[in-house]
Design a protein around this nucleic acid. Structure first.
Lengths: 102, 102
DNA sequence: GCCATCGGTAAGCTACTGCTTACCGTAAGC
DNA sequence: GCTTACGGTAAGCAGTAGCTTACCGATGGC
């Protein structure tokens, strides 16, 4: 787990977003994920590593398998980051709109 | 403006996040932004282009200057994307925790 | 114990990203 | 009209990201 904001870079990649969204539907093993995606299993492994270090997924051993699932903590970090700017953005935008009835 | 989810890739870069956060404090011209950052003005221009196409900032001409400011619409798109998974993530996590009192 | 399955890691290649310098168009002051 | 300030775009370069194939360790069934 590195920086909490690495979630943005992690979800910036479309393939990684696809992995993330599939895990959101239900937890899966690595091979199962790879079977439903147009990339190789090692590629999926690498994506999972990035997602995990961003706190977006976790895994749990189940025999010889690794079951990956969504981790709320990374999502929460990104949500609160965006919320921090949300109010400022709205206020600043409103202010600008009023200044220019144009 | 391309995909609404490009905001993740846009904010994935630390420099771009710095630009974004500075604009959140107050709207600025390009040169002013560049003066406060360790990169050249063209680099800032390129980052602004990415941020703008992700719907995260807008600009407005003011004489020969371009004043850039935060745009709520891109932020909103990212927020709603994350919110879509937030409840599922919490529910799935809770379910998993109950299944394994370990 | 052996073998098969699962999945993480290494090595290597291509493509893209972020940066720089150089250049050019445009608005405003005199 | 000239000149100056501002900033977007082009070209080019180094570093990184994402993918592949090949390999290896580890778990579980027989």
């Amino acid at each position: 787990m590195t920086n909490r904001l690495d979630g943005f870079a992690a979800l910036g990649d479309p393939t990684r977003r696809a992995v993330f969204e599939r895990l959101a539907r239900r937890p899966r093993a690595v091979g199962e994920l790879a079977a439903g995606l147009p990339i190789s299993r090692p590629a999926v492994s690498q994506h999972l590593k990035v997602l995990e270090s961003a706190g977006l997924v976790t895994h749990e051993r189940q025999g010889v398998r690794r079951i990956y699932r969504i981790d709320p903590s990374g999502i929460e970090a990104m949500r609160s980051y965006l919320d921090r700017f949300w109010d400022q953005a709205l206020a600043a935008f409103k202010r600008a709109a009023e200044q220019e009835p144009s």
